[in-house]
Write a protein that binds this DNA or RNA. Structure first.
Lengths: 283, 283
DNA sequence: GAACTTTTTGTAATTTTACTACAAAACAAG
DNA sequence: CTTGTTTTGTAGTAAAATTACAAAAAGTTC
């Protein structure tokens, strides 16, 4: 656990002198990691043993050990954060920011994903007679990608990004079918209707959406992927990439569940593409 | 810079005894950060001053300072690495691995992207009379996504994932048009032909592909995104996500280049979607 | 508010740790 | 084998951290 956060948390359990130490540390932690116990004591206007006691209170072995923890906290203190692109950013800058934000959001998504739900979803998908992926707009891209993945498994799978086709398909669904409905906002009316139709017709509905939305209410299982609000550029960016990662996970779970011999299918599909490609010159 | 990498790099410039120290450190760095100089010297079967000299050679002030650096390296020293999914992985495990790999590859992609090329591409895109995105298979998804983004800019943009349409579109292209051809392998015959056709008809061809491939040779500009080879599951995974990040970057560059007033367009598009959505209850 | 207890803090001594200066060993070249 | 150079270690020194104890401050109780 990050020791700087810990100091901030336990600030009110400290005594007067200890708080002085805490303040000096928090005001410039990067200086402290290079300072001796004497230097820090002097800066905080307290005695050396007080610093030592302070360190022990934070479950470290002593001052050197404390410095080690502090150094580590500083090192991973600025991981990936959502950084908004600015009006005057250079190509260098906005490129860096977009990567940073994407990774920050993947980090977030990973934390928010519930593996039990994933497991159940994989269960359902492997047992499905037919799998459908529905999405609109940016989520259509995700559904499209899902089709690409699942199609390789040699299972009946369809994808529609057209409201009418989605409705028709939903109406024709039946027990044993799995319908995956993708929508980050979970508020797209026609998709919510599609989910509801599919459910009425006894299909199992898996929603890749945000918890607590109208769409989520219509689903049998909700795979929720948390990401930070999309930026002010009015475009879905990170949500989409997190959803794609989720598709990768479901597809991977699917292949693992189906066992080794099944994986030959994948190889076949891949090999079938060979003739459409220019050979790579092996060195 | 990561000090563990530094040690590995400079391994051959070390003397015999220094190498012993290096080996002990590399074999269990997490132990070393808690060890005294005496303990480390004993473990490596050399004297204390040798350890000290070793630290100085690595541009640290001495042993304690070295430990600090080491601690920091360890904190963010195991960043994201490509981890292959294993036969017997649990949902927890393969989920973690897929996120890790995705992030590792984004990290890689970020490093390999050349911002000058991005800048030039954005230039061309902003000046284009018409923009086309072509891809097949997994890359079709990326092209599809690009359409979604650029369509919002109110510029003539098309996307095809059908060979015939791609060919026809390429043949009909002319000077001032920009054709973006997407293929990770850069070896898909029909796509290479499409690129070549577009070029013959004086369109500017931007390739989102790997450097040195047949497709790359047909392009005016190559935006190359390095990612590790896709896993043994025979599915394109990371390459696709890196390409999507690139699309985000191009789209962002585009809006920035077009200036503030243009951004109203985006808002309009977003607002136009409102009526198709369930209202969010504001608290 | 005095007398006592408990907690907090500091002083001084001690121990541990890291570093320096110098000398011995190992190595290389002639 | 000798000379010069580099590498390594020994022993002493300096610095840093910790301990033990005592003084001071803060709380309690009557």
């Amino acid at each position: 656990m990050n020791i700087l956060e810990k100091i901030a948390n336990e600030l009110d359990t400290f005594s007067k002198s200890e708080r002085k130490v805490a303040e000096v540390i928090m005001s410039s932690p990067s200086t402290v990691i290079h300072a001796s116990i004497a230097a820090l004591a002097k800066q905080a206007n307290i005695s050396e043993p007080t610093v030592n006691r302070f360190c022990r209170r934070l479950d470290t072995k002593g001052y050197p050990d404390f410095k080690l923890h502090l150094a580590q906290s500083l090192a991973n203190g600025t991981p990936y954060v959502n950084r908004h692109v600015d009006e005057n950013d250079s190509a260098d800058e906005y490129t860096a920011k977009i990567f940073e934000s994407t990774m920050a959001n993947l980090e977030l998504a990973r934390k928010s994903l519930d593996t039990n739900t994933i497991n159940r979803s994989v269960d359902l998908l492997t047992q499905a007679n037919k799998i459908s992926f529905f999405g609109l707009g940016a989520s259509a891209v995700v559904a499209h990608d899902a089709l690409n993945k699942f199609f390789r498994f040699n299972v009946p799978v369809v994808y529609f990004d057209d409201i009418l086709m989605q409705r028709m398909s939903a109406i024709n669904s039946q027990q044993g079918d799995v319908v995956v409905v993708i929508s980050h906002t979970g508020r797209t009316k026609s998709l919510v209707e599609v989910a509801s139709l599919a459910k009425e017709n006894d299909a199992t509905v898996i929603g890749i959406t945000t918890q607590g939305t109208p769409l989520a209410k219509e689903c049998n299982i909700v795979l929720s992927v948390d990401v930070a609000e999309d930026t002010d550029l009015y475009m879905p960016m990170s949500s989409r990439i997190a959803q794609l990662a989720l598709i990768d996970i479901l597809a991977t779970g699917f292949t693992l569940r189906r066992g080794t011999k099944f994986r030959d299918n994948l190889k076949k599909v891949k090999d079938s593409l060979r003739s459409s490609r220019f050979e790579r010159k092996e060195p």
